[in-house]
Amino acid sequence: MSDRRLEKTSALLDNQIADQQQLASELEALLADEEACQSWQRYALIGQVMRGEAELNQPLDISAQIRNRLAAEPATTGNVVKPKFGQRSARPAANAGGTLVNAASRWLKPAGSIAIAASVAVVAVLSVQQPFVDQGNEAVEPALVTTPFGGRNPVSYNTVIEDNNPSQAELAQQRKLLQAYMRDHQQQLQLSLQERQSEARVESSPTAPVEQQADSNDNN
């Protein structure tokens, strides 16, 4: 099931739909959809558990009951309409524009946590202290090796502190710089892609070179 429909189900459950007409149509859509009914049930259960209201043996799925009720309801109830194809397009244009904006704002709603570029997340996990394999120095200082297991904890009877061990602050600084390189690389790739594409466009459409030219000037 699509995200959008899930969101609608969630909005319904939270009474977030103010517009009566929209509420009616959303409800209708929900009841007609087996999957949506199941997610309603899950959402309701989650809500109840969080509020500490959930009880065992209580029928949680009330959508089936509502559906039966509605079926038994006399046809005079004007609020609930049978779903029709093309109902969406039959709406007035202004209304459609409104739902579009709603959909857009809902789509943009933050869903949590701090954003980091994907590539950066990978780097954060990596330790900066990976030794650079340098064959030249390998055999030079065996006497000073106090950290036999990759330099993690100084395990030594004499507790020799190596001078070249960077401090926590230095490490943090280095890690930051490493991330800066990764992000810079990603950004340059994207800028290069953009540049290539606008070049290709200038070549392919000689009718509109003026605007593109202005654009690339702006870049530099």
């Binding site: 990596l126 202290q129 990976q130 650079f132 394999v133 960077p166 600084q173 390189y181 810079d184 690389h185």
Partner: peptide, 21 residues
């Protein structure tokens, strides 16, 4: 990408790793 900087300004120790990047 290739970056060239003054070593005194950059201050990163020699290091290397192989991965997706």
């Amino acid at each position: 990408s290739v970056y060239l900087s003054e070593q005194s300004e950059q201050g990163l120790p020699p290091l290397a790793f192989e991965g997706p990047e």
